[in-house]
């Protein structure tokens, strides 16, 4: 903007609004040029045969896409529920008046948030080495739920803690002054309000979990336990074609886009209520 004053006086000066208008035209122009170049340079036949090959689409559906789709959802939901329960416990521990609980919870949260999820899964896959007799129920779902839930809980715990702290102190005082013991006040008064506050961020955690579920192939699962990514990648690798992965990608969007829409609506409603 300061360049205006540096312009030679002979040059006709544009008014700021005119200049802004021209800038907008220039931006449209750049966009148009990039698009035209991209379209003309790309080999569309080749692109379609790699990403959207008709027979590969059929093949992908036929080999058990619904099962993979279902697995992704089941893995995610189970892990979410587990993470929510464990995360709530961690959040309450972090807010405990007993210092060792606070330390334990903080350590757990920092540990699992700091590690890449993939490292946790690799370690989890090798867990039977450390505990030879270990049997996790609902195999393979149980294993996936626990692995994914342990990581998710660390993230959710921080969200839940923030939600609990966002409930005004007067709410607890009102509950306690009615004679409610501290546990009842937390369960009946604080947590319902906290979860209402954090529903949008928790749904975001759910979306992240949907995507993180793509990492559980590391646990070493049988074919009918594959989730979308592993499933799509397997077919893509055997056929040297990316179409199955593209379809897997669309399936993820099928799950996550409605969820983010829900989040946006909830956030809008919360804003209105305030």
């Amino acid at each position: 903007m300061s360049t205006v004053t540096a312009d030679p006086p002979t040059k006709k000066r544009l008014s700021p609004r005119k200049r802004a208008q021209r800038m907008r035209w220039a931006q449209y122009l750049v966009l148009a040029i990039v698009t035209v170049v991209a379209i003309s340079v790309a080999d569309w036949g080749q692109i379609q045969s790699v990403f959207f090959r008709g027979d590969m689409i059929k093949e992908t559906f036929a080999q058990g896409l619904p099962t993979a789709f279902k697995n992704t959802i089941v893995y995610t939901l189970g892990a979410f529920v587990l993470g929510l329960i464990w995360g709530t416990i961690l959040a309450l521990m972090r807010l405990s008046s007993v210092a060792p609980y606070r330390w334990l919870a903080s350590t757990y949260i920092e540990f699992f948030r700091g590690l890449p999820a993939i490292v946790v899964f690799i370690a989890f896959g090798l867990l039977p080495l450390a505990f030879p007799g270990l049997v996790i129920p609902f195999d393979p779902y149980g294993t996936v739920w626990i692995a994914l839930g342990l990581v998710g809980a660390a993230y959710m715990a921080e969200t839940i803690r923030a939600g609990i702290q966002a409930v005004p102190k007067g709410q607890v005082e009102a509950a306690r002054s009615l004679g409610m013991p501290s546990g009842v006040a937390t369960r009946k008064i604080v947590l319902p309000q906290a979860f209402r506050i954090i529903t949008p961020p928790l749904t975001n955690e759910l979306i992240l979990l949907v995507k993180d579920s793509s990492l559980v192939y590391i646990l070493g699962l049988s074919r009918d336990a594959f989730e979308l990514t592993k499933y799509g990648r397997d077919i893509a690798n055997t056929n040297a074609n990316l179409t199955p992965l593209v379809i897997a990608g669309f399936c993820y969007l099928l799950i996550t886009l409605p969820l983010s829409m829900v989040v946006r609506r909830m956030e809008a409603r919360q804003k209105k209520e305030r």
Binding site: P168, G170, Q171, A174, P192, Q193
Partner: peptide, 9 residues
């Protein structure tokens, strides 16, 4: 209470 502190939920 001064701030009522009704349970909003």
């Amino acid at each position: 209470f001064q701030q009522f502190n009704l349970f909003p939920h």
